[in-house]
Design a protein around this nucleic acid. Structure first.
Lengths: 199, 199
DNA sequence: GTCTATAACCGGATAGAC
DNA sequence: GTCTATCCGGTTATAGAC
């Protein structure tokens, strides 16, 4: 993907539209945010936006994919096992600079629990994949002897609790920005690791 | 509040409308759910619904108040200290029979993180109050000598983590009903209590 | 690629009859 | 209390000019 070429302005415009859409969906939810509002804030007409993405639903998918891309590249690709978990507080802290995206994902994740929601499949798959990734790292730590042996069922419970904590603390920070994201996540992760090493 | 009298049918109707509204808002979110849909499902015209609540926003507030009423009366009023925390797994498990309400609250809580959302004040106050209640019970346990001494800051972190876990596990159960709500919450609560008693 | 104009429809809310 | 009829504004999406 070069930054020059025949489609340069088109791609730039597309990225800009996604940025604006993140903000609008985050602020008003998927159903509440309108493509007219997004187009207005971006300085284009609403039909231009439709031409770019085809439909509002496709725009949502593009926005969620962008969120996915930004979070996975957030510096977790190069660590494994316990090191992965130890880096989570810093990753969560990074959300402070991307409030709109966290707000959007939290909102959509909750809305999409209804099977009829356009993003239901995306969200469900994302959670399944995320739980599997976490389980893999915990299994790595077990195999490396960094923590005590665990059954697969134990591992499943652990990664679900960890995911729950990350989601829940994120929501509390959204509702009350004085919440200390990093400290809370750090406290949880260190206690969990200590428990894994003990049992 | 008697079950007879001049306003009997009015109040019955009002309760029925709230029940239906819970389902619609839970399924489609606040912005996505329409008062026409709610009225249709309840078998009345949309103007009847407006006459009862005045506006869609007032209906949402009534629905949230109903949720509040149902959850506080869910059997946590008679316990204190550690016993309060030990009952949480059972309380969470009870959500399985009230999926619509949990779905609604989770959706609205995320949506309402935007300060412009009509339910923002309600949700923010609810979280503040809930955190204070939990902190009070943990402080009780400390004072009773059931757990080791803790600073107020420690207690704040603990109740935030606990709240996060409850919210996050609830969301996972909504997304994937095979999630074992009670087992996950139970695992978290017992480990937390063990850590409180140790440190 | 972007615009204006428009189609076709649905939203919340109100007025007034019964 | 509940209805029907209606207002008015907003919604997604399309058509076609430039």
């Amino acid at each position: 993907m070069s930054t020059r070429g025949p489609y340069r302005t088109g791609r730039r415009r597309r990225e800009q539209l996604i940025d604006v859409a993140v903000g609008v969906f985050a602020e008003l939810g998927y159903a509440g945010g309108s493509i007219r509002d997004i187009a207005d804030r971006a300085g284009v007409s609403h039909s231009t936006l439709i031409k770019h993405f085809g439909s509002k639903e496709n725009l949502l998918v593009a926005v969620l994919a962008e969120w996915d891309r930004r979070t996975v590249q957030a510096g977790l690709a190069d660590v494994d096992g316990l090191a992965y978990f130890r880096r989570l507080p810093a990753v969560m802290a990074a959300h402070r600079h991307n409030r709109g995206l966290l707000e959007l994902f939290t909102t959509i994740a909750a809305e999409a629990s209804a099977p009829t929601h356009p993003a239901h499949a995306f969200i469900a798959q994302r959670y399944t994949r995320n739980l599997a990734t976490l389980a893999g790292h915990l299994r790595s730590a077990v195999d490396a002897g960094d923590v005590a042996p665990m059954t697969d069922a134990d591992i499943q419970t652990e990664v679900r609790l960890l995911t729950a904590t990350l989601d829940g603390i994120g929501l509390q920070w959204l509702l009350d920005p004085s919440t200390d994201l990093e400290a809370c996540v750090s406290a949880y992760v260190h206690r969990a690791i200590a428990a894994w090493q003990r049992a």
